[in-house]
Amino acid sequence: MSETIIKVKKTPPGPLEYLRRWPIQAWLVAVTVFLYAPLISLMVFSFNDSKRNVVWQGFTLKYYVKALTNDSLIMAFTNSMVIALFSTILSVIVGAMAAIVLWRFRFSGRTAFDAGLAIPIVVPEICMGVGMLVFFAKIFPWPQGLPWPLNLGAIIIAHISFSFPFVAVVVRARLASFNRELEEAAKDLGASEWRTLIDVLIPHIQPSLIAGGLLAFTLSLDDFVITFFTSGPDTVTFPVQIYSMVRFAVTPEINAASTILIVVTVLLTFLALKFQGSDALTAGHGTEKK
Protein backbone atom coordinates (compact mmCIF):
# COMPACT_ATOMS: atom_id res chain seq x y z
CA MET A 1 0.00 0.00 0.00
CA SER A 2 2.75 2.40 0.97
CA GLU A 3 4.80 1.48 -2.10
CA THR A 4 2.57 3.41 -4.50
CA ILE A 5 2.66 6.55 -2.41
CA ILE A 6 6.43 6.51 -2.17
CA LYS A 7 6.98 6.38 -5.92
CA VAL A 8 5.32 9.78 -6.24
CA LYS A 9 7.70 11.46 -3.78
CA LYS A 10 10.78 13.19 -5.06
CA THR A 11 13.28 11.55 -2.71
CA PRO A 12 11.94 8.13 -1.82
CA PRO A 13 12.63 7.09 1.76
CA GLY A 14 15.34 4.48 2.25
CA PRO A 15 14.21 0.91 2.80
CA LEU A 16 14.35 1.21 6.57
CA GLU A 17 13.26 4.79 7.03
CA TYR A 18 9.92 3.75 8.44
CA LEU A 19 9.41 7.16 9.95
CA ARG A 20 9.04 8.64 6.48
CA ARG A 21 6.19 6.37 5.49
CA TRP A 22 2.75 7.83 5.95
CA PRO A 23 1.01 4.81 7.54
CA ILE A 24 3.65 4.80 10.28
CA GLN A 25 3.43 8.56 10.64
CA ALA A 26 -0.34 8.40 10.96
CA TRP A 27 0.02 5.62 13.52
CA LEU A 28 2.52 7.64 15.54
CA VAL A 29 0.24 10.67 15.53
CA ALA A 30 -2.74 8.55 16.59
CA VAL A 31 -0.82 6.99 19.49
CA THR A 32 0.43 10.41 20.61
CA VAL A 33 -3.12 11.77 20.55
CA PHE A 34 -4.33 8.73 22.48
CA LEU A 35 -1.65 9.22 25.14
CA TYR A 36 -1.89 12.98 25.44
CA ALA A 37 -5.44 14.07 24.61
CA PRO A 38 -6.93 13.04 27.99
CA LEU A 39 -4.11 14.70 29.95
CA ILE A 40 -4.09 17.88 27.92
CA SER A 41 -7.85 18.25 28.04
CA LEU A 42 -7.66 17.74 31.80
CA MET A 43 -5.10 20.52 32.08
CA VAL A 44 -6.93 22.89 29.73
CA PHE A 45 -10.28 22.41 31.42
CA SER A 46 -8.78 23.15 34.83
CA PHE A 47 -8.87 26.78 33.63
CA ASN A 48 -12.46 26.50 32.48
CA ASP A 49 -14.96 28.78 34.17
CA SER A 50 -17.77 26.25 34.42
CA LYS A 51 -18.89 24.07 37.27
CA ARG A 52 -20.04 21.19 35.10
CA ASN A 53 -16.79 21.43 33.21
CA VAL A 54 -18.18 20.38 29.86
CA VAL A 55 -18.18 23.37 27.53
CA TRP A 56 -15.50 26.05 27.47
CA GLN A 57 -16.88 29.09 29.31
CA GLY A 58 -13.84 31.32 29.62
CA PHE A 59 -10.55 31.47 31.46
CA THR A 60 -10.42 31.38 35.24
CA LEU A 61 -7.97 30.58 38.01
CA LYS A 62 -10.67 30.18 40.63
CA TYR A 63 -10.35 26.40 40.80
CA TYR A 64 -6.66 26.79 41.56
CA VAL A 65 -7.57 29.16 44.36
CA LYS A 66 -10.16 26.65 45.52
CA ALA A 67 -7.68 23.76 45.39
CA LEU A 68 -4.99 25.79 47.13
CA THR A 69 -7.34 26.82 49.93
CA ASN A 70 -8.72 23.31 50.41
CA ASP A 71 -7.12 22.34 53.72
CA SER A 72 -7.41 18.59 53.34
CA LEU A 73 -5.92 18.78 49.85
CA ILE A 74 -3.01 20.92 51.05
CA MET A 75 -2.44 18.59 54.00
CA ALA A 76 -2.46 15.59 51.68
CA PHE A 77 -0.03 17.31 49.31
CA THR A 78 2.32 18.22 52.17
CA ASN A 79 2.14 14.65 53.47
CA SER A 80 2.99 13.29 50.03
CA MET A 81 5.96 15.61 49.69
CA VAL A 82 7.34 14.79 53.13
CA ILE A 83 6.87 11.05 52.55
CA ALA A 84 8.54 11.29 49.15
CA LEU A 85 11.44 13.28 50.59
CA PHE A 86 12.23 10.87 53.45
CA SER A 87 11.59 7.82 51.31
CA THR A 88 13.94 9.18 48.63
CA ILE A 89 16.82 9.91 51.00
CA LEU A 90 16.66 6.51 52.68
CA SER A 91 15.99 4.62 49.43
CA VAL A 92 19.07 6.17 47.82
CA ILE A 93 21.27 5.23 50.77
CA VAL A 94 19.95 1.68 51.15
CA GLY A 95 19.70 1.11 47.39
CA ALA A 96 23.24 2.34 46.74
CA MET A 97 24.56 0.10 49.54
CA ALA A 98 22.84 -2.91 48.01
CA ALA A 99 24.22 -2.07 44.57
CA ILE A 100 27.77 -1.61 45.86
CA VAL A 101 27.71 -4.84 47.87
CA LEU A 102 26.49 -6.82 44.87
CA TRP A 103 29.00 -5.21 42.56
CA ARG A 104 32.04 -5.36 44.81
CA PHE A 105 31.97 -8.55 46.76
CA ARG A 106 31.86 -12.26 46.17
CA PHE A 107 29.91 -13.99 48.92
CA SER A 108 27.80 -17.05 49.32
CA GLY A 109 24.15 -16.14 49.01
CA ARG A 110 24.92 -13.38 46.53
CA THR A 111 22.59 -14.83 43.88
CA ALA A 112 19.83 -15.22 46.47
CA PHE A 113 20.25 -11.62 47.63
CA ASP A 114 20.25 -10.43 44.03
CA ALA A 115 17.05 -12.36 43.27
CA GLY A 116 15.48 -11.21 46.53
CA LEU A 117 16.07 -7.60 45.53
CA ALA A 118 14.23 -8.17 42.26
CA ILE A 119 11.11 -9.53 43.93
CA PRO A 120 9.73 -6.19 45.21
CA ILE A 121 9.98 -4.95 41.61
CA VAL A 122 7.90 -7.77 40.16
CA VAL A 123 5.42 -8.61 42.91
CA PRO A 124 1.96 -7.16 42.13
CA GLU A 125 1.34 -3.94 44.04
CA ILE A 126 -1.85 -5.23 45.58
CA CYS A 127 0.01 -8.15 47.21
CA MET A 128 2.63 -5.85 48.68
CA GLY A 129 -0.16 -3.54 49.80
CA VAL A 130 -1.99 -6.22 51.77
CA GLY A 131 1.36 -7.38 53.13
CA MET A 132 2.00 -3.91 54.52
CA LEU A 133 -1.55 -3.71 55.88
CA VAL A 134 -1.11 -6.96 57.82
CA PHE A 135 2.44 -6.09 58.88
CA PHE A 136 1.51 -2.75 60.39
CA ALA A 137 -1.69 -4.12 61.90
CA LYS A 138 -0.27 -7.21 63.59
CA ILE A 139 3.53 -7.38 63.71
CA PHE A 140 4.83 -3.86 63.91
CA PRO A 141 1.97 -1.58 64.91
CA TRP A 142 2.98 1.99 64.19
CA PRO A 143 2.11 4.01 67.31
CA GLN A 144 -1.12 5.97 66.92
CA GLY A 145 -1.37 9.68 67.62
CA LEU A 146 2.27 10.56 67.04
CA PRO A 147 2.91 14.20 66.14
CA TRP A 148 3.27 15.03 62.46
CA PRO A 149 5.41 13.99 60.56
CA LEU A 150 6.23 10.94 62.72
CA ASN A 151 2.77 9.51 62.08
CA LEU A 152 3.76 9.09 58.44
CA GLY A 153 6.44 6.56 59.40
CA ALA A 154 4.54 3.46 58.32
CA ILE A 155 3.91 4.88 54.84
CA ILE A 156 7.55 5.98 54.53
CA ILE A 157 8.74 2.48 55.43
CA ALA A 158 6.41 0.92 52.87
CA HIS A 159 7.58 3.35 50.20
CA ILE A 160 11.25 2.64 50.86
CA SER A 161 10.56 -1.09 50.53
CA PHE A 162 9.36 -0.74 46.95
CA SER A 163 11.70 2.14 45.96
CA PHE A 164 15.16 1.06 47.04
CA PRO A 165 15.39 -1.98 44.72
CA PHE A 166 14.78 0.41 41.79
CA VAL A 167 17.55 2.69 43.03
CA ALA A 168 19.84 -0.35 43.29
CA VAL A 169 19.12 -1.19 39.64
CA VAL A 170 19.99 2.35 38.52
CA VAL A 171 23.19 2.50 40.59
CA ARG A 172 24.33 -0.92 39.39
CA ALA A 173 23.96 0.16 35.79
CA ARG A 174 26.30 3.04 36.53
CA LEU A 175 28.77 0.89 38.48
CA ALA A 176 29.17 -1.35 35.43
CA SER A 177 31.11 1.49 33.78
CA PHE A 178 33.49 1.93 36.72
CA ASN A 179 37.10 1.03 36.13
CA ARG A 180 38.11 -1.19 39.04
CA GLU A 181 41.75 -0.29 38.51
CA LEU A 182 41.02 3.19 39.84
CA GLU A 183 39.98 1.65 43.12
CA GLU A 184 43.07 -0.53 43.21
CA ALA A 185 45.25 2.46 42.47
CA ALA A 186 43.72 4.37 45.37
CA LYS A 187 44.40 1.45 47.68
CA ASP A 188 47.98 1.07 46.39
CA LEU A 189 48.50 4.71 47.20
CA GLY A 190 47.53 4.01 50.77
CA ALA A 191 43.84 4.83 50.96
CA SER A 192 41.74 2.67 53.24
CA GLU A 193 38.65 0.77 52.04
CA TRP A 194 36.36 3.53 53.31
CA ARG A 195 38.52 6.34 51.95
CA THR A 196 38.44 4.65 48.53
CA LEU A 197 34.70 4.30 48.70
CA ILE A 198 34.10 7.91 49.59
CA ASP A 199 36.71 9.57 47.39
CA VAL A 200 36.71 7.32 44.33
CA LEU A 201 33.56 5.26 44.03
CA ILE A 202 30.90 7.67 45.29
CA PRO A 203 31.96 10.52 42.96
CA HIS A 204 31.74 8.11 40.04
CA ILE A 205 28.21 6.94 40.86
CA GLN A 206 26.94 10.39 41.83
CA PRO A 207 24.82 10.94 38.69
CA SER A 208 23.10 7.62 39.25
CA LEU A 209 22.42 8.56 42.87
CA ILE A 210 20.62 11.67 41.67
CA ALA A 211 18.76 9.80 38.92
CA GLY A 212 17.85 7.02 41.34
CA GLY A 213 16.69 9.60 43.83
CA LEU A 214 14.43 11.26 41.28
CA LEU A 215 13.06 7.85 40.36
CA ALA A 216 12.37 7.04 44.02
CA PHE A 217 10.73 10.43 44.48
CA THR A 218 8.42 9.89 41.51
CA LEU A 219 7.59 6.34 42.55
CA SER A 220 6.69 7.54 46.02
CA LEU A 221 4.62 10.46 44.74
CA ASP A 222 2.89 8.19 42.24
CA ASP A 223 1.99 5.33 44.52
CA PHE A 224 -1.63 4.80 45.31
CA VAL A 225 -2.29 1.11 45.97
CA ILE A 226 0.34 0.43 48.64
CA THR A 227 -0.33 3.74 50.40
CA PHE A 228 -4.05 3.05 50.29
CA PHE A 229 -3.48 -0.02 52.50
CA THR A 230 -1.03 1.68 54.83
CA SER A 231 -2.59 5.08 55.40
CA GLY A 232 -5.01 5.89 58.17
CA PRO A 233 -7.61 8.65 58.44
CA ASP A 234 -5.04 11.26 59.53
CA THR A 235 -2.27 10.16 57.17
CA VAL A 236 -3.88 10.79 53.80
CA THR A 237 -1.57 11.30 50.83
CA PHE A 238 -2.30 13.27 47.70
CA PRO A 239 -3.27 10.29 45.49
CA VAL A 240 -5.45 8.85 48.26
CA GLN A 241 -7.17 12.22 48.70
CA ILE A 242 -7.72 12.58 44.94
CA TYR A 243 -9.10 9.04 44.91
CA SER A 244 -11.76 9.82 47.47
CA MET A 245 -12.62 13.03 45.60
CA VAL A 246 -12.83 11.22 42.25
CA ARG A 247 -15.16 8.60 43.69
CA PHE A 248 -17.43 11.42 44.74
CA ALA A 249 -17.56 13.53 41.60
CA VAL A 250 -15.59 14.88 38.66
CA THR A 251 -14.87 18.51 39.58
CA PRO A 252 -12.66 21.25 38.13
CA GLU A 253 -10.92 21.43 41.49
CA ILE A 254 -9.48 17.95 40.93
CA ASN A 255 -8.38 19.09 37.47
CA ALA A 256 -6.52 22.02 39.02
CA ALA A 257 -4.85 19.86 41.69
CA SER A 258 -3.93 17.24 39.09
CA THR A 259 -2.46 19.87 36.80
CA ILE A 260 -0.17 21.04 39.60
CA LEU A 261 1.05 17.47 40.14
CA ILE A 262 1.54 16.90 36.40
CA VAL A 263 3.69 20.03 36.21
CA VAL A 264 5.76 18.83 39.20
CA THR A 265 6.24 15.44 37.51
CA VAL A 266 7.25 16.96 34.18
CA LEU A 267 9.80 19.19 35.93
CA LEU A 268 11.22 16.17 37.79
CA THR A 269 11.47 14.21 34.53
CA PHE A 270 13.41 17.02 32.88
CA LEU A 271 15.71 17.21 35.91
CA ALA A 272 16.34 13.47 35.63
CA LEU A 273 17.12 13.91 31.94
CA LYS A 274 19.57 16.65 32.73
CA PHE A 275 21.45 14.46 35.19
CA GLN A 276 21.53 11.13 33.42
CA GLY A 277 20.70 11.77 29.79
CA SER A 278 18.01 9.74 28.13
CA ASP A 279 18.96 6.65 30.21
CA ALA A 280 17.07 8.15 33.11
CA LEU A 281 13.85 7.86 31.13
CA THR A 282 13.90 4.12 31.12
CA ALA A 283 15.56 3.60 34.48
CA GLY A 284 14.24 0.63 36.33
CA HIS A 285 11.69 -0.39 33.75
CA GLY A 286 13.05 -3.45 32.10
CA THR A 287 15.25 -2.01 29.40
CA GLU A 288 18.37 -2.18 31.49
CA LYS A 289 18.22 -5.98 31.35
CA LYS A 290 20.43 -5.86 28.32
Binding site: L39, D222, S258, L261
Partner: peptide, 8 residues
Amino acid sequence: PFWTNLLI
Protein backbone atom coordinates in the same frame (compact mmCIF):
# COMPACT_ATOMS: atom_id res chain seq x y z
CA PRO B 1 2.60 10.20 30.38
CA PHE B 2 4.13 7.15 32.01
CA TRP B 3 5.74 9.28 34.71
CA THR B 4 2.45 11.01 35.40
CA ASN B 5 0.46 9.80 38.37
CA LEU B 6 -1.61 6.70 37.57
CA LEU B 7 -4.60 8.07 39.41
CA ILE B 8 -4.50 11.32 37.46
